[in-house]
Simulated assay, not measured.
Amino acid sequence: MSVPVYELSDSRAATDALLETLRNGRWRPGAVGRFLRMAAHRSLRQATRHPCAFTQAGALHGLLFTSARGPGARTWVATSWTLTVLHLGLLETRDRLSGADVITLLRGNLPTTALGRSRWSGLLAIALDLADGRLARRQGTVSPFGDYADSLADAAFWTWLVLGHEPSRTVRGVALATWMVPVVAVTAVGIRRGKMPDRPRPALLRPAAAMQAVVAVRHVARR
């Protein structure tokens, strides 16, 4: 007897099971509907199984929500909270958010803060990115949740900075391609195979990190 997707504690196994549902159903509307229902069911069940993390996420985003300023800032925070609580299952055996996870979520919400609107926001985002990675490794709290949140925080912040504050069309185009192409490619391969592939992690050449540095320095110099 197979174990329901929402009962699987291993997030990778659960993701593979969900993608297999799509593949076996040949991506027909019925298969897509089952995929969405199963994913939502798992998300809700996992949120109830991580009450400490759920409370932490609510408290953190509550503070961000009350201090958010600017057009769409509170919608941004609300979206961040929704994505966070729907992916608490990625914490797997951990019952709470780590310090590194909190730093990552703060980085993803920088656009809603006064610091995020300063000329130093790009450099601050890079510093926070380095800090959360180092802290996670030191404390042994590396998890699929942290990996997911890190990628999403990068995509959210840097896309916002580039689209809103980078005047060069060339730089905007290269930056968006650098961050979005790997995500789209990995997702497409996962859906086709019915199994999530590992994300490419180049050991020497890191185009996304290099692009972040370029955008951050240009943002400082321009303002």
Score class of each variant (00 low, 15 high):
153 A>V: 06
134 R>C: 09
171 V>W: 03
137 R>V: 03
124 L>Q: 09
146 G>K: 06
128 L>H: 12
205 L>I: 14
4 P>E: 03
17 A>N: 05
88 L>A: 03
223 R>G: 07
98 S>A: 12
133 G>N: 15
217 V>H: 12
179 W>K: 10
40 A>T: 04
219 H>F: 04
15 T>G: 14
187 T>A: 14
208 A>Y: 00
60 L>I: 07
179 W>S: 11
22 L>A: 01
123 L>C: 10
145 F>D: 01
18 L>P: 06
115 L>S: 12
187 T>K: 10
2 S>N: 14
3 V>L: 15
40 A>E: 06
207 P>G: 06
65 F>H: 15
59 A>Y: 05
12 R>C: 08
19 L>I: 03
84 T>V: 06
123 L>Q: 10
215 V>K: 06
68 A>R: 02
50 H>Q: 02
170 T>M: 11
181 V>G: 10
120 W>R: 13
221 A>S: 13
100 A>Q: 01
66 T>I: 13
8 L>C: 00
94 R>I: 02
122 G>S: 07
148 Y>G: 00
12 R>H: 11
121 S>W: 04
70 G>F: 01
76 W>G: 12
44 L>M: 11
201 R>T: 09
128 L>V: 12
162 V>S: 00
127 A>S: 14
164 G>Q: 09
105 L>S: 02
115 L>M: 12
3 V>S: 12
19 L>N: 03
9 S>L: 14
107 R>K: 12
73 A>Y: 00
106 L>K: 06
165 H>C: 09
171 V>A: 02
119 R>V: 12
186 V>F: 06
149 A>V: 01
220 V>T: 11
45 R>S: 14
202 P>R: 08
64 L>S: 13
